[in-house]
Design a protein around this nucleic acid. Structure first.
Length: 980
RNA sequence: GCCCGUGUAACCCAACUGGCAGAGGUAGUGGACUUAAAAUCCAUUCAGUGCGGGUUCGAAUCCCGCCACGGGUACCA
């Protein structure tokens, strides 16, 4: 079974065993088994045209080691791989190369599969899927229909079929309000608030559909979106960088209203946030999702616009009401003005004729500015008075209503009550426009002292400071935004004075509620997910548009809606941000575009789904990738995704270990959780969360080089002043670098195509073998850390692997004479072996592969010094090595005379009694300083050790003439004598 | 600005839950083997843990205040 190499020749050995694995389907995952299961998943890659670089497989190798280890532990492992092949990167590549994306995608996938197989990764390739397979995206479309046919029931806090809602409306268990909201009959406040309700029977079909659209989880809406003219498409919030450019390609993005498909992810905000508690994820990722969801608790407060003598807005209807959201209802008495976002439609209603022109000009100006421009303008606040006044409900005081772009339409109600004394932004604005600042929270003394204006008082005089703050808060450089004690907060009905912030908040909220002036409210930063793209290379929506604008979902039976073949699939990008979007599918043949049903001609939806759609559920497809009846068989899904795994029962369920980059923290990982929860609510999947344990691997970084124009040059062709390749001397001091004879400068960054510093795994495999590359990548440092690639360093692990070979195989290629059939004779070898088994196993469990490898190196270095090695010892070593360097391990396993394959050999067990030596070294310290050491019996008591210490002349000398005050003995480690 | 993470030898990385800072690897130096080189083997140099305080018998590890780098976020009321 083994090859007949005499020396360690990775190329032959690796090819041989890869063929063996493929032929024997060694890594086939079987559904259902008496053994415990374990689902280990990698974030699948985009099949880009340039193929893999050594940074890509970092995580894949980690999971592979884990998977191989688990198999040896008799676990039924699911370890699949697939390709996320739709979307912008694949399409951009196709556009650049002038080939159809399907052709390039297939070619790229083929190349990546070859590269991955070359690394000896133990995937069950029979389960491989690409999101672009018709048999795959048919189910992506199916899931979209599930979303379309569902609504989120806030009472039950879960998604339900929309038919349930129709039924409830029909039976008058709930009603539609004039604003399109759905209320339960018993919910009296909501009914009053919404200005009356309508019965379902009284609505026309059109009205019914519109009402339902307000509740479907997938809906079409005209909303301000991120429009990227250069890419010819709109983008999700998550796809726009913080300087207002597209994450893909770094093109400018503009805000503009467009009619688009949206997914109601906001309905799940609360559960997406709360269920983070259920999963075992890195804290920073949880935090990022937490921040992105952005929960804040506060109150909704209703203000009325006054129509009295103060400043009556003439044409305003008498019942104009503005709700604002605030997290600090306790500062309501300090609200001295109100601000509406420029886009707020209420602005039109309330603006007085005198102010109309100024307001219109301001709104126009605000609309013309992109987010980028808004940011560039160093935060100087702008705004215009509307002429209207709102009545502060706590004191009936009229406060001016302004329009300003520091208030965003997309958050809360697009309106705020401004409390300049206790909010930085309001403070700045109030100063800018000389609006009153009224303090209602007394800061703590510490704040007063540090913020005190020097010229006014001595900071020690707290009384004066307090008086100053009460009289003239604007004298302080900043607003006080912390917690304190209320003041100036009293009316006939309620008194907050003297209350600490939290109590005041509580009290005022209750008061508002009892008066019908407001209510407690929770807001989220999360927005609904913009789901349409004006691109060709994506999943078509299973949606038809009727002649009267009605929306008709494609029947489940008629899926898939296949992407039509098209000659010209290019997006028609534009420099003009106002040009209408032109989805490429608009140029599809009429036979595709139009569908006739019952004599009516419908047009297909011309947008496609975004990149993230396919990756939202691929982990489910892997459970049962060839199922043509369902996205995955119920039983298979339950087996792999639910409850029990190799580590015991897990209520959360989900993928047992998911490894990938942190860059997907708020995109893929949030979207996938959302889809999963919908499917869970509808009873299609069995676990509340998709990914139970998540692990983020770090990046591979590398040096890159730029010439004097700042153009990057290929790093592998850079040399130093002595003509040595930069790769060889990258860390050496005093190097100057040249490319084609011209000087270049050295920089450092994430390995990749754009920095021209990619190192292909193929080249490294060629020279050192896949086993060396695998082991080296893991040896570089902790998997989660960022690491620098240095080709030189691979020598170390390469030598290590060769050393193992030489310990076991002789020059003729036979089992070495050093290997003995007898049991292990050397007690030190035995101890070290047990220690190594323990450490390697534990380290793999904790994904600490670097230290596992170090331990094996220590052990091999030891074996090299021994005269003989028991066959059992060699056998155990090979098994420990197998997850890391599987080809070499297979070969040695065969040469030791074992039956292939080592992949199914049992993982070695260690004997805890063998771990410790008979004696241990104890260090003697006097006053914490090293003064000697000695070997003592492992369980020697304190007195014995102290006596041993005193015997040492050096210890005795240091104790000379001193009184021993204290003796600290840490058994087996240290004895510290405190003396003076 | 705010939040998170990381700083140990020329370089990559270890150090159990506070117990001799050094396991492993790279590079360097010296030597063995060799006609020579490669490969291999043996030996060996190099830091007091980013900076400043504190707690402790004892701090890389815990606490406080800074600095540098990396990532996230940015008027979210």
């Amino acid at each position: 079974m083994a090859t007949n190499c005499k020396d360690y020749t990775p190329a032959d050995i690796e090819a041989h065993w890869q063929e063996y694995w493929e032929k024997h389907k060694t890594f086939k995952a079987v559904d259902f088994s008496d053994n415990p299961k374990f689902y280990i998943l990698d974030m699948f890659p985009y099949p880009s045209g340039t193929g893999l670089h050594v940074g890509h497989p970092l995580g894949y190798i980690g999971t592979d080691i884990f998977a191989r280890y688990k198999r040896m532990r008799n676990v039924n492992v699911l370890h699949p791989m697939g390709f996320d092949a739709f979307g912008l990167p694949a399409e951009q590549f196709a556009v650049e190369h002038g080939v159809h994306p399907r052709v390039t995608t297939e070619k790229n996938i083929e190349n990546m599969v070859r590269q991955l197989k070359r690394l000896g990764l133990s995937y069950d390739w029979d389960r491989a899927v690409a999101t672009t397979d018709v048999n795959y995206y048919r189910w992506t479309q199916w899931i979209f229909l599930q979303l379309y046919h569902s609504w989120f029931d806030p009472m039950e806090n879960r998604a339900r079929p929309i038919d349930d809602l129709v039924k409830m409306l029909g039976q008058e268990e709930c009603f539609v309000t004039r604003t399109g909201e759905i209320v339960r009959s018993r919910d009296k406040t909501a009914r009053d608030k919404q200005g009356g309700i309508l019965t379902w029977a009284s609505l026309s079909d059109r009205e019914k559909n519109e009402a339902l659209a307000h509740h479907r989880l997938a809906y079409l809406a005209e909303v301000p979106v991120n429009w990227c003219p250069a890419l010819g498409t709109v983008l999700a919030n998550e796809e726009v960088t913080n300087d207002g450019r597209s994450e893909r390609g770094n093109f400018p993005v503009h805000q503009r209203p467009l009619k688009q498909w949206m997914l109601r992810i906001t309905a799940y905000a609360q559960r997406l946030e709360k269920d983070l508690d259920l999963v075992d994820w890195p804290q920073p990722i949880k935090l990022m999702q937490h921040n992105w969801i952005g929960r804040s608790d506060g109150a909704l407060v209703r203000f009325t616009i006054r129509h009295g003598e103060a400043a009556p807005p003439r044409e305003a209807p008498s019942d104009t009401e503005v709700s604002v959201f605030t997290t600090r209802p306790d500062t309501l008495f300090g609200a001295t003005y109100m601000v509406l976002a420029p886009e707020n439609p209420l602005v039109e209603t309330i603006t007085t004729p005198e102010q109309r022109d100024a307001v219109a000009a301001y709104r126009e100006q605000a609309a013309a500015r992109t987010d980028l421009e808004r940011q560039a303008e160093t935060r100087i606040k702008t705004g215009v008075f509307t002429g209207a006044y709102a009545i502060n409900p706590v004191n009936d005081e009229p406060i001016p209503v302004w329009v300003a772009d520091y208030v965003l339409m997309g958050y809360g109600t697009g309106a705020i009550m401004a409390v300049p004394a206790h909010d930085e932004r309001d403070f700045e604005f109030a100063r800018q426009f000389s609006l009153p600042i009224r303090p209602v929270v007394m800061p703590d003394d510490c704040w007063l002292r540090t913020q005190a204006p020097k010229e006014h008082v001595t900071p020690e005089d707290t009384e004066t400071l307090r008086r100053l703050y009460t009289d003239k808060p604007a004298a302080f450089p900043e607003a006080f935004t912390g917690r304190g004690t209320n003041l100036n907060s009293v009316n006939q009905d309620i008194d907050l004075n003297g209350l600490p912030t939290d109590e005041a908040r509580h009290k005022i909220t209750n008061w508002l509620e009892s008066k019908g002036l407001g209510n407690a409210q929770t807001q989220y930063k999360l927005r609904d997910w913009l789901f349409s793209r004006q691109r060709y290379w994506g999943e078509p929506f299973p949606i038809l548009h009727g002649p009267g604008g009605e929306i008709v979902p494609v029947d489940e039976q008629d899926l898939p809606v296949e992407l039509p073949e098209m000659e010209d699939f290019r997006p028609h990008g534009s420099d003009d941000p106002d040009a209408p979007p032109q989805p490429p599918l608009g140029r599809a043949p009429d036979s595709w575009r139009f569908v006739e049903l019952d004599g009516v001609r419908y047009e297909r939806e011309l947008n496609t789904m975004p990149q993230w759609a396919g990756s939202c559920w691929y982990y489910l497809r892997f459970c049962d990738p060839h199922n043509s009846e369902r996205f995955a068989g119920k039983e298979a899904e339950r087996y792999w995704m639910q409850g029990q795994n190799a580590e015991g029962p897990v209520p959360t369920g989900g993928v047992d270990l998911y490894v990938g980059g942190a860059e997907h923290a708020v995109l893929h990982l949030l979207y996938a959780r959302f889809w999963h929860k919908v499917l869970y609510d509808l009873g299609h999947v069995s676990s509340p969360e998709p990914f139970r344990r998540l692990f983020n691997q770090g990046y591979i970084q590398a040096y890159y080089y730029e010439d004097e124009r700042g153009i990057r040059v290929p790093a592998d062709q850079v040399v130093d002043q002595d003509g040595k390749s930069a790769e060889q001397v990258q860390d050496a001091p005093d190097r100057r670098f040249f490319y084609e004879g011209r000087p270049v400068t050295q920089h450092y960054g994430k390995m990749g195509k754009s920095l021209k510093n990619a190192v292909a795994p193929d080249d490294v495999c060629e020279e050192y073998g896949a086993d060396a590359l695998r082991t080296y990548l893991m040896f570089l440092g902790p998997l989660e850390a960022m690491k620098t690639w240095n080709t030189q360093g691979i020598e170390g692990v390469s030598r290590f692997l060769k050393r193992i070979w030489r310990e076991i195989v002789d020059r003729e290629g036979n089992r070495g004479s050093k290997i003995r059939e007898t049991a292990e004779q050397n007690p030190e070898t035995l101890r070290l072996l047990n220690e190594t088994i323990k450490k390697v196993g534990e380290d793999i469990e904790e994904m600490r592969f670097n230290t596992a490898i170090s331990q094996m190196m220590i052990f091999v270095n030891h074996l090299q010094k021994c005269d003989s090695i028991a066959r059992d010892t060699a056998n155990a070593l090979v098994r420990l090595l197998a997850p890391f360097a599987p080809h070499l391990a297979e070969e040695l396993w065969a040469r030791l005379g074992e039956t292939p394959s080592v992949t199914s050999a049992p993982w070695p067990e260690y004997d805890p009694s063998r771990l410790e030596a008979e004696t241990v070294k104890v260090v003697f310290q006097i006053n914490g300083k090293y003064r000697g050491d000695a070997e003592v019996a492992k369980n020697a008591d304190r007195e014995t050790v102290l006596a041993a210490a005193r015997e040492q002349p050096r210890v005795a000398a240091h104790l000379e003439g001193k009184t021993v005050r204290k003796v600290i003995y840490v058994p087996g480690k240290i004895l510290n004598i405190v003396a003076s």
